[in-house]
C-alpha cells in the first residue's frame, strides 16, 4: 500500500472460483496462516520422510521477483522447491499449476489458491495473453514463480524438452531465473501412485541467469528455454557424478552432452 493512498484488493469484485482462478488474486490473513501451516508441515515431512538434501542454496536470490525452474517428475517437486525458500516468502511464492488439474472444481481451486497459492496455467489453451499477464505480474510486484518448463510430469523418469513459455515470461527482463534439478522425486512419488513413498530426495540449485540481452520474441524465447534446459541437464549430470563417486563406482554413462 502506498502512503496515504487507499488501494482496494484487485480482485474485489470476484467471488468463489472466479477469484481463486484469477491472476490478480490477493490473499489475506486466513490464507497467510493456512500457508504457514502447510509449508511448515511440508518442510518437516520432506526432511523426515524424504531426507531432503539441498545443494547450492547460496545461489537463491535474496529478494523476489525470481523464477525457479526445474525438471518435473512428481507432485512433490513444487513442494521441494518451495521448501528451499524462507517461510516469510510464502505469500509471494506462486507455483504455476495446471489449470485442468488444480483448478478444475471450485473446491480444488479454493485449496490450490488458498493453501498452495498456485496460479493456473490452462494447458489446452495456454494463450499469449495469459502468459503476458504472468509476465506483467512478475515485473510489477515481488513474486516468485515455480515453473516446470517441460509442461507436465515425466512418465518414464527422463527429462522432456523445455517449452518456450518461460522465455515468454522472462526474455528481455532483468528477472533472475534459477535452474534447479530434482532427483529422487520420481521414485518418491511416481505419477501413477496416490501417496508418496519413503525415498530420498535431493535438489541441486544452479546459478541464476538473467535474459536482459534477449529480445522478447520467438528466437529469444527459444534461446531462454534452450539455455535453461542445458543448465538443468548439467546440474543433473553433476548430481549423477556425485552419486556415483560417493558409492565408488565408475560412471556408467557418458557425461552430459
Amino acid at each position: 500500500m502506498e502512503d496515504w493512498r487507499l488501494e482496494p484488493a484487485r480482485d474485489l469484485e470476484l467471488v468463489g472460483a472466479d477469484r481463486h482462478r484469477s491472476y490478480y488474486r490477493e490473499s489475506g490473513l486466513v490464507a497467510n496462516i493456512a500457508r504457514f501451516g502447510w509449508w511448515t508441515m511440508m518442510r518437516a515431512s520432506l526432511k523426515v520422510l524424504h531426507r531432503l538434501k539441498v545443494h547450492g542454496r547460496e545461489h537463491l536470490p535474496q529478494y523476489p521477483s525470481f523464477v525457479l525452474v526445474a525438471n518435473h517428475a512428481s507432485h512433490l517437486d513444487a513442494m521441494v522447491l518451495g521448501s528451499t525458500l524462507p517461510l516469510r516468502l510464502r505469500d509471494q511464492l506462486f507455483p504455476l499449476a495446471a489449470g485442468d488439474v488444480f483448478f478444475h472444481t471450485p473446491a480444488l481451486a479454493a485449496f490450490s489458491a488458498t493453501v498452495l497459492n498456485a496460479l493456473p496455467v490452462w494447458r489446452k489453451k495456454v494463450g499469449a495473453h495469459a502468459i503476458r499477464k504472468l509476465r506483467e505480474r512478475l515485473i510489477d510486484e515481488p513474486s516468485i514463480y515455480i515453473l516446470f518448463p517441460e509442461g507436465g510430469r515425466t512418465r518414464d523418469g527422463s527429462m522432456k524438452p523445455f517449452k518456450s513459455g518461460i522465455g515468454m515470461m522472462t526474455a528481455g527482463t532483468s528477472i533472475p531465473v534459477v535452474p534447479c534439478h530434482l532427483s529422487g522425486t520420481f521414485e518418491a512419488f511416481p505419477p501413477e501412485s496416490f501417496i508418496p513413498r519413503l525415498h530420498r530426495v535431493s535438489i541441486r540449485i544452479g546459478k541464476p541467469r538473467t535474459f536482459e540481452h534477449l529480445e522478447n520474441r520467438r528466437p529469444g524465447w527459444d534461446e531462454v528455454s534452450r539455455t535453461l534446459e542445458t543448465d538443468v541437464r548439467a546440474l543433473a549430470a553433476t548430481t549423477a557424478g556425485r552419486n556415483t563417486n560417493t558409492t565408488n563406482k565408475p560412471p556408467t554413462t557418458d557425461p552430459a552432452p
Binding site: 487507499l6 482496494p8 484488493a9 490477493e26 489475506g28 490473513l29 497467510n32
Partner: peptide
C-alpha cells in the same frame, strides 16, 4: 471486517488484521 479490509487495502497489513480478529 474482511470486506472493509479488502476494500481499503488494510488486508495487506497482516499483523494489524490479526490483532483485530
Amino acid at each position: 471486517f474482511r470486506e472493509y479490509s479488502r476494500a481499503t487495502g488494510l488486508f495487506r497489513e497482516k499483523t494489524i488484521c490479526a490483532v483485530i480478529v
